[in-house]
Design a protein around this nucleic acid. Structure first.
Lengths: 230, 230
DNA sequence: AAGTAATACTACGCGCGAGTAGGTTAGGCG
DNA sequence: CGCCTAACCTACTCGCGCGTAGTATTACTT
């Protein structure tokens, strides 16, 4: 029948009737995130979303608008969820390294527990047309700026303190590394979230520390030039 | 049914005629890469591809098959191009660091010169359905294994040499960091390919060197544990 | 010069899925 | 107890775009 193996609660769906709008909107968004993540925006059909949500199609249009608007609503909700999860875990009182470490841990943990949410944000949103890429880009940008300022704060006591703007390429690299590592994790589930987060934290923090303190690599044999930050 | 049989050669049809199959296939693939990259698989129409290619639609079906097959052909050609560009730049005679550096340089350079190719491989291929993701995954896997063995070779002289398999998460992180940095680059074109490649090389190589030599970070203050590699 | 195969086009069938028209029932409230 | 609104449905329309039937034209071979 349906290629969906996790069809929990298939038969006894008395399709609870007359629920308030807010509850239905939640159900619809839940279903939409799941289907969009599994199939991608274009292959996802409103009929399937309505079926998974346990409601008929016109209600989706009445409550959340067109297919595009529904997709944007999904991106917004899931991006908010992710960023808030990380934000609340990062205590501004502790040192930058500890903040980064906690952020990474929660990030990996979130993805482990919310695969569909992550696939939607990372795989589907950036592809599939300009409007979605732009929408997602804003959220990504916020995360970048946050991390960049974190890294900049970490250089405050060093010989050469950095501006958050100068840290942006490093922040981009770090985020990309985390994303890629998460993808790799899918095919190597024997590793733990904390283990991988630790690996990445080490790689990033140690390399970053070297650069801040002036140790660097340059082509044609090691030297202690200052080209790392241009 | 030609309109105006006596109208000797109007003007606006340079559409070169009767070209051999191999040439047409090249033109079609060029057009397809461009359109698929710009619009994504689903929004791209065969009509637009045929128009850009300067040929009619049935020829595409005759030469390259369905829309899906054409997309796969694009992925294969562009992935081959990219991997070959990097492979030829990496001289197995020089040290691992120099190999990695050259690979990164060529990688950044390739993306700069072949935006459409890169967008196709990085943005469009992983989204849009299983068949394409699988196809692309094979190529990505090859690159990963290559880099992992490179990193492993770099640890040969160290206190604790590593197996290529153990290096996979680091390779994944490195590739992801490079990809993300390339995305960031699009919105900050004032940077040069070499400059960004250098930043990433430094971050990765220095951090990696620390870990190989046993220096590591751990939560709750620095310590010299050995948890980085589990 | 005639035959053949490769190159090329115009114009259409047809399925799929976004979005809607129009009608029905439940529950809150006087 | 009847009225009104919000929740909810079935059953359509209609356009878009993949893929193809059928045909024409050029180049190479003998």
């Amino acid at each position: 029948m349906r290629p969906d193996p996790d069809d929990h609660e298939a038969s006894p769906r008395p399709r609870s009737r007359r629920l308030p709008r807010s509850v239905r909107e939640r159900q619809i968004l839940d279903a939409a995130v799941e289907v969009y993540a599994a199939r991608g925006f274009h292959l996802a059909s409103m009929d399937e979303i309505s079926e998974v949500a346990g409601i008929s199609k016109p209600m989706i249009y009445a409550y959340l608008g067109s297919k595009e608007e529904l997709f944007v609503a999904c991106i917004q909700r899931e991006a908010t969820r992710l960023i808030e999860a990380i934000s609340t875990a990062v205590d501004p009182e502790v040192g930058p390294d500890e903040q980064l470490w906690r952020g990474l841990r929660v990030f990996f943990d979130y993805v482990q527990r919310n695969r569909a949410s992550w696939v939607l944000l990372h795989r589907q949103a950036p592809a599939g047309g300009e409007p979605f890429a732009a929408e997602f880009g804003q959220w990504r940008e916020r995360a970048m700026v946050l991390i960049a300022s974190l890294l900049a704060r970490a250089t405050e006591g060093a010989a050469q303190p950095m501006q958050p703007q100068q840290m942006e390429p490093f922040a981009a690299s770090l985020v990309g590394a985390a994303e890629s590592l998460l993808d790799w994790w899918v095919e190597h589930p024997e590793h733990t979230a904390d283990g991988l987060a630790m690996r990445l934290m080490n790689l990033a923090w140690m390399g970053f520390g070297d650069l801040v303190e002036g140790r660097s690599w340059s082509p044609g044999g090691d030297a202690s030039g200052c080209t790392a930050f241009d």
